[in-house]
Amino acid sequence: MIHPIIKAMSDNPVRLVVSPPPHWRSGRTIQGMMRAHLLALVPAAIMAVAIYGVQAAAVIGMAGTAAVAAEVVCLRLQHRDVNVDNFSAFYAGVLFAFLLPATAPWWLAAIGGVVTIALGRTVFGGFGCNPVCAPLVAWAVCRFSWPDAMDIDLNLAHFMANSPVDQLKYFGVQSLSQFEYMDLLTGHQIGGLGSSQVLALAAGGVYLIASRWTRLFIPVSFLAGVAGAAALFWFIDPTAYADPIFHLLAGSTVFGAFFLATDTASSPVGRLPQTVFGLLAGTMVIVIRVYGVYPDGVPFAIMVASLLSPLLDRLRPKFFGVR
């Protein structure tokens, strides 16, 4: 809270507002940014409800609400201004929900929302200070604590479709003939309730980039990293490895590219660092999908890349006039 300072010579009837320069500003605010980001998630949320039914909406609502409540409590405890009206907590909660299976029990969504805020952000100093993307922290915590409840393939077994990344992991490339790329694109694959709505998420991501709330560097290089690394394996042996288009469309690749990797606090700053960061994270996705034990490498790939971002931040150009 900034208190007004009454200065000498201010004893005149016209009270001017004093503020530091520049006196023109872009007019962009965190609130606007978060609103745009939430808007960008709307198509995917609608698709999720269309495919999984209202339970998907319930999970999103639960996680979002829990995150906001947790943020209020955390800020109160720290005696900070409660600024949940900037939607950042709600947005983080929704991102977490997008990674859950649509059948997730209410308590899982609630705990995840709370962990997103408390462990993902508050312990590191709050919004903007988290070294790793907050929803991913919660995802990892829940993944280790309640592996059964978090397991996409297991929980969604009663749906007709399969999870492409799990199929690849456990049954190999031959099993992938069951997937039409068109179906993957339109979200007819099982996965995180929002994170598998590829086309809807891509539309949201393009909107964010077009409106310049997100910069091009991370999403593009992330997708390039995924495609490039996948292509490399595929060229080596197309019978053992899936093709790049599959990797782009399966699992939460697109979600990660536009919404997780671009998390401002945990990604580096500047053109080159952001590009390298995206490439690294994208490559790591494929490495985990090929060699790792987790079917969908996206969350861990982004977390690992985030830990490198302080290093990547050093890839900056020389300052003006410094030789």
Partner: peptide
Amino acid sequence: VTSSKAIPAVQDAACINCGECVLQCPARVQ
């Protein structure tokens, strides 16, 4: 003279590390 309502006010807020300032700086500083 501008109306102070024309533009969202300056805030004593934490940096969210969005990187806009770095990308826009003509002196390439941080």
